[in-house]
């Protein structure tokens, strides 16, 4: 087939609407948030009574951190999925989210006697966090990866990792609402490990699923 013949065939298919990336991602995000919330609400008991003064800043801070990572991952994924798009601002947003987490951990270490650091890191039950965050992230990861199949990434594994980070941040946000551990030291260690696991899984699946 000559190239001009192929062009004729492609142009004749103009009436088929393109599969747009952005609307699919918005739908995936809405489904993800709902699925993560329903899973967390169904599987975890309500948050136990905690020291109100201790939680006053630390509890909302968990959401600041998870949402900052989620927003950065979403921006990164949208750019990785679009050929020729510069990462620029998205990369800065990711560093920004990491800086917020690191800053919160440093402040916590500053206001906490060093004898208590270990207790703050270990929390009440870190294994619950490591198990549940990936479970709450599973449906988000699946629907976000499906939406990203409409993309055209230069690096399928890279886009898969960004999708995994986004799904992990959504799962962690839902988990945070029920998790009794509010210390940034707990979040910095166990949430990071759990979300990192989802990110690695996303990269591995993306490397196969997101080829085009």
């Amino acid at each position: 087939m000559r190239t001009e013949d192929l062009i004729r065939a492609i142009a004749a298919d103009a009436a088929t609407p393109p599969k747009r990336l952005a609307p699919a991602v918005w739908v995936a995000l809405a489904v993800s948030a709902a699925a993560a919330w329903v899973a967390a609400w169904g599987m975890l008991p309500p948050r136990p009574e905690v020291d109100a003064a201790f939680a006053a800043v630390r509890f909302p801070m968990k959401f600041v951190v998870t949402c900052a990572f989620g927003a950065a991952a979403a921006a990164l994924a949208m750019r990785l999925a679009r050929p020729g798009a510069a990462l620029g601002a998205a990369r800065i947003a990711l560093f920004g989210a990491a800086a917020v987490l690191a800053g919160a951990m440093l402040v916590e270490m500053y206001v906490t006697p060093s004898a208590l650091w270990r207790d703050r890191v270990m929390g009440i039950n870190w294994l619950v966090c490591l198990i549940h965050v990936p479970i709450f992230s599973a449906t988000p990861l699946a629907v976000i990866l499906l939406a990203m199949r409409r993309g055209a990434p230069g690096s399928p594994a890279g886009l898969g990792a960004a999708a995994g980070l986004l799904a992990g941040a959504i799962g962690a946000t839902a988990y945070a609402a029920f998790c009794p551990n509010d210390s940034p030291l707990f979040v910095g260690v166990w949430y990071t490990l759990a979300v990192g696991l989802v990110t690695v899984v996303g990269a591995a699946i993306g490397a196969r699923l997101l080829r085009w």
Partner: peptide
């Protein structure tokens, strides 16, 4: 030719500000 096909099938990734 492969690129032209990809342009066609992936034109939903182009946004008009780009």
């Amino acid at each position: 030719q492969e690129t032209l096909l990809a342009i066609h099938l992936k034109r939903g990734t182009w946004d008009d500000s780009q």
